[in-house]
Design a protein around this nucleic acid. Sequence first.
DNA 1: GTCATATCAGATATTATTTTCCGATTATAA
DNA 2: TTATAATCGGAAAATAATATCTGATATGAC
Lengths: 143, 143
Amino acid sequence: MTVLFSKKCELAIQAVLFLSIKKEKLIYNAPAISKELKVPKEFVSKMLQTLTESGIIGSKKGKNGGFYLARKPSQIKLIEIVEAIDGYDVFKTCVLGFPDCGDENPCPVHDSWGNIRDETYHMLNNETLEQLKEKTLRKIISS
Amino acid sequence: MTVLFSKKCELAIQAVLFLSIKKEKLIYNAPAISKELKVPKEFVSKMLQTLTESGIIGSKKGKNGGFYLARKPSQIKLIEIVEAIDGYDVFKTCVLGFPDCGDENPCPVHDSWGNIRDETYHMLNNETLEQLKEKTLRKIISS
DNA sequence: GTCATATCAGATATTATTTTCCGATTATAA
DNA sequence: TTATAATCGGAAAATAATATCTGATATGAC
């Protein structure tokens, strides 16, 4: 099981982080990204299509085509990727699964979890890819 | 998708919270708990078996049998239920899905997520069912 | 213009999770 | 002792998530 995001969303964040440490508009195709992230290329391909639809990355068809960041790393936040793939459900759904949990009818951990959930949102909404660059470089061997 | 726990685990927490506001050793059978939590009784039944194996609740077979809290609400923490059903994977797995993420080779959000994860653990480890009783009563109509 | 190489779109297959079913066993009440 | 009502355990079915395949379309190189 994944922690908070779907596999597709995890992979999307990994891929965008990977692209963010490369020279601007440098194009990588699906097989290359697949190899880098050690994930099946068909799955990577599908995920990259979704990211392209939501305008986070751009694509170029045909020979020497591939994918590239649509904006500068300083203008992309992790939360955008989460929104594009998984949506905001994680930030709305009751952590204990009570169907009618809300501020008016809170579950026993509604407030405690609310704080944690807000912090998580803050984490994803605050840092841009640019700010994560150094840490990303340390994680992924860059070229 | 669920937020952090499996469906079975969410249900387990709900069920134990439900039992915690009842008189000690008062027995409820699977159909009754199923009705209360509005979840299929077979699924409730399976989950209650797992909780019984791990000693959080007790069971009584035969006519007028059912399930009851094995210990006092002041001696049961939410984290025990999570451990019994889902295990500690949520607290170990990389939130971005990097297979080799750890303190030596951290992902870009390893530290930030680490704090949030620790807070979550703290939330589940700190409060006992007894302390949640009031909030639970407000959520679940008691008898 | 033709060929090679890439994305794109939709369908399909596979796997994992969740849910349901069924028979066996056990305990209680009458 | 017999009928009943419950848990227990394993298997099966349904559903959801993940992964793969296939053909179509677009693009650049030659």
